[in-house]
Each structure stands twice: as C-alpha cells, then as structure tokens.
Design a binder for these strands. Structure first.
Length: 493
RNA sequence: GGGCCGUUAGCUCAGUUGGGAGAGCACCUGACUUUUAAUCAGGGUGUCACAGGUUCGAGACCUGUACGGCCUACCA
C-alpha cells in the first residue's frame, strides 16, 4: 500500500517526466529576473501615480498558493522580499507556458513574465504572459494556514520553518542586522576586526568544559575555543590598541533554552581604557543597535517592556546583593561561613562549591531575577574574576561589570589584569580549586599567554557580549534555539 | 541527572465509558473568466512512535523502550 506522501511525490515525478517528454527542463540553470516582488509592487505604485503604461517585467520565486478557477487562475509567488500575486488567463499564455502551467504545483520555483496591474479587489498582481518552471518540487509543503508548528521539525528542517513561518524569517533578518550594527559601531569607534584561531592548545579565557579534538599530523590534543579573550589580548600586547572579534565559541555543557553548545560572542579590547569606559561604550553600542534594528529604544520582551535608553543604572554588587538578600558577602568571606548562612536561609547549594560559586548562586537567586531593565552590576569579588584587575584601593574587589537585561546576563567586562606574576598566581589558584575535575582543569593555564603578558600589555578594558541573547531580547524569543538557525539537537535514531 | 507532558494521515489536530480510525488544509477527479484560507460536488491515501501485557476486544488501560517539549539541575 502506498502512503499519501509516496502518492504525491510519485505524481509529481510523473509531471517531471511529462515536462521532459515535451522538451521542457524542470531544473533549468538560470532565469533572468528584472525585479523582486517588492520592487514590482513599488513599480506598480509609481506606474499608477504617473499614469504611465505598464512594462513587461519578470519575477522569480516559489509558488506558495494556487487558485485555479476554471479558465483563469491565481497564484502566489514568494521571493525573499515578499509575496506577489500572479494572474493567468489562457489567451495571454503561449503554448509552452500553458504546458508548464498545467504541471505547476505549490512548492515549485517559477519565473513569471508579464505586466503589473491591480485586481478588482485592489491587489497588486502580475498578469502573466510567460511562465517557466525553474525547479519542480516533489514534496508537499507544510499546511498553509497553521504553518509548521512542530518544534522539532522547525529546528531540524529550518528551511520549512522559514518558508511557512514569516515570523521566523524576521528573527534571522533581525539577527543579521544586530551583527552588522555591531560591526558598524565598532568600526566607527576605530576598532580593528580580527580573526583568531578556533583551535586552541589550551582552552582559556573562561572556565567551561571544552570540546576536545586531535590533530593527527601534529599528534596533539587541541580544544575548540571557549572564549576569544586570550588571543585578543596578545594582539593588544602586539600594539593593536583597539581590536574586536565576532566569533563562534564552543562550550561542552548543558543545552537549555539559554545555552547552545556553540554560540556567538563579541569580544573587544581597548588599550588605555578601564571598565568605566567599557561600560559607557557597552550601553552606547547596545542601545544604538536596538534602535537601529527595532526602530526604538524600547522593546517588548515577554510580559515586560525593556527600555534600553542610556544611561543604565550602575548597581554595586555588594550593596545590591545585601539589599535583595540581606547578605553582606564581606561578613561571610569563606565558603564555610557562607554555606552555614545559606543553610540558615534554607537555600540549596552544591556542597562542593567554592565561595565564588556560592556567591554566583546567590546572585542568580536574589539579584538576576530583578534585572529586567538594563543595568550594570559592578565591582565583583576577586575570587569570581581571575582575569580582572583589582581596584586601586581594594585588593579584594576587581574592576568588573556584568550587563543584564530581561533577567539575563548579556555582557561581561573588566579592566584587564596585565601583571604577569599576579595573573600566574590567579591561574594556579584557579587550577588548584578545580583539581580532581580533569575535564575542566585541562588546559587552563596558558603559559604562552603569560609569556605574552610578560612583554607588557598596556592597561586595557575588555568586553564580552553574548550576541544570541541580545538577539533573543530584540526579537522577543524566549529560547536561544529560536535565534540560532541550526541549533544543536539530539541525534535522531 | 530528576520531575511533568507529549507522539494518531504530508501538515494542523479531534478521538467521550475499552467495541466501526476521523476533521480541516494538502493531494486526486469534475464544475467555475478577478480569486486571495477561493467556492461547490466527489475521492481517505494510516505500522494510532516501538515492544510486551491485561481483555472476548486496546488509539484509549498497565509496564518497558525510543524520540521530543517544558521545568529543574549543571553551566564564568
């Protein structure tokens, strides 16, 4: 017994056969179009305003609807600029076109030549004199009214999602605009865009489980980068004063609505700047990009409206945490003290956590959920920040900020540590705290980076900004998978 | 890793108390010269995720498995 799908595809294959028998190629190499659908509609508007005679144009795209009604027919043609209606009248079509129109199906790509006019109901329409099948489709498209809603299929066959859900296309257009907006901003500030290796001999610049790979001819273990940080700072050592990279980074950790194993980061480094300068640049850049992409500083996100108008409040981390939780971390300066306080408050925590992790957990519970509106959390304890420079008047606090919006961390930045001895000490302490967990401590200490620092790196302000989360905020998507074209999914059996 | 939910036609979904596998779109046939979710008439194209079990009888109840979603945990 044949399934419906087999039925449809075999019917369409028969159509292909019939076209070939008539000497028509169902998969031609090229089609010359004169206009996009959007341009054609625009042209009709001016044609009507100026009362000029319609001219022949040609369009190309995918047929998304077919309304055959006796002798005349209508179709919708979709290209990347939008949809346009086609109108077919037998007396207008030559015989070759007629043959092809007979075999035309929803889903096919077609080129249509004709003149623009407006139908009785006022829709801009191409009166077709010549139709060419440009690619015969043999599988039926998803249902036209509800679109494709099966989440798994939307991710696994993103092309179907893009064809049948216009909102999905919008998200990725917005994503592209965010990236070009950031590039424009950074370029205009005199930053140089650079590319650094994805394959690292040691996975540094962040503390995350790396993906491990192997280079055969070098017979060496390599890691996919977990941050852009260390190579970029080497470039600051090398005398580039302002550099940035928009790059993919890889973390071998859990997958969730906010985490994908590969994601895109902007990292920038500016010599002679500190974290205050970076903070100012961050709010300027983000608000500028938001305005450029959405047309406004205010965006809707879930149930709330986020206002990116600068300046954003600077919230002292210690003070904010104390306000929200009643805990002054300076009074619980080691892991045991903090654990007993958390026990007292009936908070759950991993008993193996170090002090920094516990504090990070407290921020997640008490502070982050309140940061719907853009804000900077500033001045982190040194234990949480091994690559940041301490404040001039307090060697337990570093000059670091994280930017939040929509209750998500979107940026992390600091005055970069440039003292090679201090950096080495911090690396060692970090590696020691991680001992016992081989996967994570593997390749933490980047001696080559320490070597670079020992030649001298000027005072530098660095920034890391999560592009995917920013796009989530601007497109009102609550899952990172909806802003990544091909998100990582489990294997299918 | 834990909890909850889901898997029925190409797509979107319904299926009541355990008794004939259904609807809309898509598709096929026919009618129709300004439709636009075209309409009208006819046509059902299926491994009810998989494997067991209970039962005279299972899409439905039970057990297990696979896949997926959400939450949670993990996560610089």
């Amino acid at each position: 017994m044949t399934s419906r799908l087999e039925n449809i595809t075999s019917l369409r294959q028969e159509k292909i056969q019939r076209l070939r028998e008539k000497g028509l190629n169902p998969y031609p190499n090229k089609y010359t179009r004169t206009h996009t659908t959007a341009e054609a509609i625009e042209m009709l508007n001016t044609q009507e305003a100026d009362e000029t005679a319609p001219v022949e144009i040609s369009l190309a795209g995918r047929i998304t609807a077919l309304r055959r009604m006796g002798k005349i027919s209508f179709a919708d043609l979709l290209d990347s600029t939008g949809k346009i209606q086609l109108f077919f009248k037998p007396e207008n079509l030559n015989s070759l076109s007629e043959e092809q129109f007979k075999e035309l199906d929803i889903g096919d790509f077609a080129g249509a030549r004709g003149k623009m006019f407006r139908t009785r109901s006022g829709e801009a329409t191409l009166q077709v004199s010549c139709i060419d099948i440009l690619c015969k489709s043999i599988e039926p498209l998803p249902e036209k009214w509800h679109g494709l809603t099966d989440i798994e299929t939307r991710y696994r066959q993103r092309y179907l999602d893009l064809i049948s859900n216009p909102g999905s296309k919008e998200v990725f257009i917005a994503r592209s605009k965010v990236i070009s907006g950031i590039r424009e901003f950074m370029d205009s500030k005199g930053f140089l865009e650079v590319e650094t290796p994805v394959l690292h001999s040691s996975a540094g610049g962040a503390l995350a489980k790396p993906f491990v790979t192997h280079h055969y001819s070098l017979d060496r273990q390599l890691y996919l980068r977990i941050a852009l940080e260390l190579p970029l700072k080497r470039l600051i050592v090398g005398g580039f004063d302002k550099v940035y990279e928009l790059g993919r980074i890889f973390r071998n950790e859990g997958i969730s609505t906010r985490h994908n194993p590969e994601f895109t980061m902007l990292e920038s480094y500016e010599a002679y700047a500190d974290y205050q300068d970076v903070m100012q640049m961050t709010e300027e850049m983000v608000s500028c990009v938001v305005k450029k992409v959405t047309g406004s500083y205010k965006v809707k996100f879930g149930d709330s409206e986020i206002d990116f108008t600068p300046p954003w409040p600077r919230l002292d981390l210690r003070q904010t945490l104390e306000e929200k939780s009643g805990i002054d971390f300076c009074k619980y300066r080691d892991a045991d003290k903090l654990k007993s306080k958390m026990k007292q408050l009936n908070l759950q925590f991993d008993p193996n956590s170090n002090w920094a992790k516990l504090l990070d957990g407290l921020l997640g519970i008490y502070v982050e959920p309140h940061l719907t509106q853009p804000a900077f959390l500033v001045d982190y304890p040194i234990e949480m920040s091994p690559l940041a420079k301490t404040k001039p008047d307090d060697d337990t606090i570093v000059e670091r900020f994280e930017a939040f919006a929509g209750c998500m961390e979107i940026a992390n930045a600091f005055s970069e540590l440039n003292d090679p001895f201090e950096q080495e000490k911090r690396f060692i302490r970090q590696a020691r705290e991680r001992h016992g967990d081989d996967e994570e401590s593997a390749g933490i200490i980047d001696y080559d980076f320490l070597k670079a620092l020992s030649f001298g790196m000027p005072p530098t302000g660095g920034l890391g900004l999560g592009i995917d989360r920013l796009v989530m905020l601007l497109t009102n998507q609550c899952s990172i998978r909806d802003v990544i074209l091909f998100p990582q999914l489990k294997d299918r059996g």
